[in-house]
């Protein structure tokens, strides 16, 4: 049995490793390289150093500069609005679910459901709901505003639909976390006569701290990649005020006309760097939890 050749690791780990290298690791390296080139996706990329980054960040004459700053501003605005909404509202709903009133299991299932829906189907349904001609807002509530093409309603709509779509995941995590809070801690505080607000801050929040941190980081990372909502609900409008960075990246690399893939890759690297700060935080936390 003492053979030197051990082929089992290759058999078991090989397939995963090959796909990992070809479609995860290589593209990550290649992506950074491409951001340093002038490239149209088909001809050989021409190395230009940091020119793309200089153009994007400092050349006020360039269209890419305008695109990047507008896209970054819009993506960031979206993150700042959507992340708190996707944390606070699911938490409030989870607190109510944890009271375990009649029907709480059914309510939880219903609230989670949109989380599994394809984004394009969600946006078709909501685009009709929010439209003046086909939605309930005008006929039932007399609201005579074209929501998806008027600010600030366009942002409210995008954030609201995102909340509807994403709340379920965080909700489930919070419900599970709330169920693990030791009963005696809560009872003790009741005996002490602490009100529910004090109890929430003194006992509930500290007990679900790690889940709050986890969901905040993961939600932030997810929302920086915002694309489908703005694309299909507002089309980036009105006046590009909801045109997010991913839309510019997609458009520059794969849109009509000659591809500016190098420039798009540079934008992707800049967005990626911001996202990496948050995934770095996530990585540190998980390392500390393991230790």
């Amino acid at each position: 049995m003492k053979r030197k050749m051990n082929f089992w690791p290759a058999v078991f780990i090989g397939p995963f490793l090959i796909l990992f290298i070809v479609f995860v690791l290589a593209p990550a390296v290649f992506g950074v390289f491409v951001s340093l080139t002038d490239w149209d996706l088909y001809n050989a990329p021409e190395f230009v150093g940091f020119d793309n980054f200089k153009t994007i960040l400092f050349d006020t004459e360039s269209i890419y500069h305008d695109q990047f700053f507008n896209g970054a501003k819009n993506t960031l605005s979206f993150v700042v609005m959507a992340v708190p909404a996707c944390i606070i509202i699911p938490l409030a709903l989870a607190l109510m679910l944890s009271v375990k009133a009649r029907g709480h299991k059914l309510f939880q299932s219903l609230l989670y459901l949109p989380n599994l829906f394809a984004i394009s189907a969600v946006m078709i349904i909501w685009a009709f709901q929010l439209s003046l001609s086909y939605g309930p807002f005008k006929d039932w509530f007399g609201l005579d505003i074209n929501i998806t093409s008027t600010q600030p309603w366009a942002w409210i709509a995008i954030v609201g639909v995102t909340l509807w779509w994403c709340a379920g995941g965080n909700l489930i995590i919070y419900v599970a976390a709330l169920n693990t809070i030791p009963k005696d801690q809560i009872e003790a505080s009741q005996i002490d006569g602490a009100g529910s607000v004090i109890r929430f801050f003194r006992i509930v929040l500290p007990n679900i701290r790690s889940q709050l941190l986890f969901t905040t980081v993961m939600t932030t990372i997810a929302q920086f990649n915002v694309y489908g909502q703005a694309l299909m609900l507002t089309g980036g409008g009105p006046n590009n005020s909801t045109r997010v960075l991913m839309m510019y990246i997609q458009q520059n690399a794969f849109g009509t006309g000659i591809s500016a893939a190098g420039m798009a890759a540079a934008m992707a690297v800049l967005l990626g760097l911001v996202i990496m700060i948050f995934s770095g935080i996530q990585f540190m936390i998980s390392r500390r939890a393991e230790a």
Binding site: V22, P27, G272, M276
Partner: peptide
């Protein structure tokens, strides 16, 4: 070590992979 490297790549943002993956 190999598993550690794999884990740490979870930090890589997928947005950078989009354009190269198309080419691949």
């Amino acid at each position: 070590q190999l598993f550690g490297i794999l884990l740490s790549t979870m930090m890589l943002p997928s947005v950078i992979n989009l354009i190269p993956n198309f080419k691949i």
